[in-house]
């Protein structure tokens, strides 16, 4: 293949990564923005989504689309329920203290990994895509499913944005994010908003995982790299800023795709991580965020 088509392929792959990354990072960013909690277990919610997708899809027979659609509904709901329980049992009792919750979510990370290892095992297992349609471009064929993933992600991002900016629930969330004490004084059930946001954040990660798992495989350690990448995205985009998160996901996803195709993937990760650490040191509000309050 010549350079041009190569670049196109890398860009397409990068866009798929960006789509998934944006969903996952959005969950992380919501949780941090509203609750001021850095959820280190976010990658494990993603892993749990993929593992549950495998479990649901293999429980349903017939056409792969049936199992996949069932997984797309059931897996995020289960993951959301797990997050809700974690919030009530652990985070709430810690009073959402930033340092204590980090330690607690590290614990949660290990517990979820252990649960997956115990009940799912150490093997990587595939999930069938709901449809197999290859779009033939002049230079190579490209999976239609991957393009559908991009579409689904865009739709979900738009929905989240609409909910946040146009509905009463979104208003409550924004009020809590801006000033939780005043919100409480105005009768907003801050405790329930926190629980809801934590669950929704986890569900976004789970949806991202269900969408991407047909193109990769479900494995109990698969949450680590996406966690780091979504941290990177959230930091570059500015902690708690939705628009910044999406722009940063595009930037990181596409550049990761292109750099990994032409250079060593390890080097790409090293550079990205180092750049992000420097951003956090010298511009803590992120590249696109407004200055911190």
């Amino acid at each position: 293949m010549a350079f041009g088509p190569h670049l196109l392929l890398a860009t397409l792959e990068g866009l798929v990564t960006s789509a998934v990354l944006a969903l996952m990072a959005l969950g992380l960013s919501l949780v941090f923005g509203v609750m001021r909690v850095v959820n280190v277990a976010h990658g494990e919610f993603y892993m749990l989504g993929a593992v549950l997708a495998w479990a649901v899809a293999s429980a349903f027979g017939g056409h792969p689309a049936i199992g996949f659609l069932a997984a797309l509904v059931i897996a995020p709901l289960v993951v959301g329920a797990v997050a809700l329980v974690a919030d009530r049992l652990v985070l709430k009792r810690l009073d959402y203290n930033p340092e204590a919750t980090i330690v607690a979510t590290i614990g949660l990370l290990y517990i979820i990994q252990q649960a997956a290892l115990t009940f799912y095992g150490a093997d990587a297992r595939p999930v069938q895509a709901p449809f197999n349609y290859r779009i033939s471009l002049p230079w190579f064929g490209y999976s239609g499913y991957k393009l559908a993933v991009i579409g689904a992600s865009v739709a979900l991002l738009l929905t989240t944005w609409l909910v946040l900016s146009r509905t009463r629930v979104g208003l409550m969330m924004r009020a809590t994010q801006y000033d939780s004490e005043t919100a409480q004084a105005f009768g907003i059930p801050v405790g329930r908003v926190y629980a809801g946001v934590f669950a929704v954040g986890a569900m976004l990660a789970a949806i991202a995982a269900v969408l991407i798992v047909p193109t990769s495989q479900a494995h109990y350690l698969m949450g680590r790299d996406p966690l780091l990448l979504s941290f990177i995205v959230v930091i570059i985009g500015g902690l708690g800023s939705l628009r910044g998160t999406v722009v940063a996901a595009l930037l990181i996803g596409v550049s990761d795709g292109i750099i990994s195709m032409f250079f060593s993937p390890t080097l790409a990760k090293i550079i990205a991580t180092l750049v992000v650490a420097m951003v956090l040191v010298f511009r803590p509000q992120g590249l696109f965020g407004t200055s911190a309050r």
Partner: peptide, 9 residues
């Protein structure tokens, strides 16, 4: 994994 996780929490 499990033991460290439970211990931390």
């Amino acid at each position: 994994l499990g033991i460290v996780g439970v211990a931390l929490i």
